[in-house]
Design a protein around this nucleic acid. Structure first.
Lengths: 157, 157
DNA sequence: ACACACCCTGTAGCCGCTCCAGGGTCAAGG
DNA sequence: CCTTGACCCTGGAGCGGCTACAGGGTGTGT
């Protein structure tokens, strides 16, 4: 009676790449499903739902740790949900912080860009000059603040 | 005449960790310095300036590729600086895009959070319920959009 | 003689995937 | 019966930008 699906079907149904699904299993986010005789993964409806849940959390930029916590809460219907609220609040705070950082960054970048309106020799480029100048505002200090964030949002593929 | 400094001094002077400096050398951002008899790195003033330049770029969240390009332009004073401007414009665009994404995210998170005002049993928690619901707006679609960005700004240490 | 601060190389880990090599399984078509 | 092709498996490497550690050498002071 239980309809099961293979990994490819599950991937198509959720829009998740096969390799990512296997990765979630290895990472302990998605429980390992039953196997058919030939060793293929046989997923149930519950797996599909959990995978969709994971993806929605990821779409909200939650880390695996956070998702694991949420899954745990979900599996304990009698627990009280304060922790969920707290987790979400903290996550929102992190996102807000990151936005503020990036906005500061953008302002700096725009002011830097405004230094050079016309095309000149690199030697005279005000942008390169400013980047080379040690006394350029608290830019360097900012580095430690942004720490761990840099290069994060890199262009896809 | 040339005052040289060891890696520890350079680190202190720039606020960059020793391991990071060695990493930049390996990554081709900072040229490998002369060595003393015992094999210690002996950095010149030029190294210090280049490292500071790199850190200012990193503080502006530029990728290593971008920094390498900038360093190249800097080393070609006769080239024209249009490329610098273009690079910066693209970088600004990326930052702006990321900000917009995160703002959308924040709005979603806040509306999700607003679902649960009081503390209840996890079973009844509207947040968990909404995350479990497949038809919750185009959240899932957003996933592919944010792709490559998730988990990026993780809390430092 | 020893402690201690500093330096070296090389390797592994973090996150969230993504991709690849090298194989097995199974149904349809020649 | 054999091949083709779509699908599946495992295990490992790679991305960026570091960070941390193991296991050693060097140089100064007590």
């Amino acid at each position: 009676m239980e309809t099961t699906m293979r990994i490819g079907e599950l991937g198509r149904a959720t829009g998740v790449e096969i390799e990512t699904i296997r990765y979630y299993e290895k990472a302990g986010l998605l429980p390992g499903p039953a196997r058919t005789q030939n060793g293929y993964r046989a997923y149930s409806q519950a797996h599909l739902e959990q995978l969709a849940f994971i993806r929605r959390c990821r779409a909200l930029d939650m880390a695996q740790d956070e998702i694991r916590d949420l899954l745990l809460f979900k599996s304990q219907p009698e627990a009280n949900c304060e922790c969920v609220n707290t987790l979400l609040d903290e996550h929102i705070a992190h996102v807000a912080t990151r936005i503020a950082e990036l906005q500061g960054l953008e302002a700096q970048l725009r002011s830097l860009r405004a230094q050079c309106k016309k095309i000149r020799k690199a030697r005279d480029c005000a942008i390169l000059q400013e980047l080379a100048q040690p006394d350029a505002k608290p830019v360097v200090k900012a580095a430690s603040h942004v720490k761990g964030a840099a290069g994060a949002h890199r262009r896809g593929k």
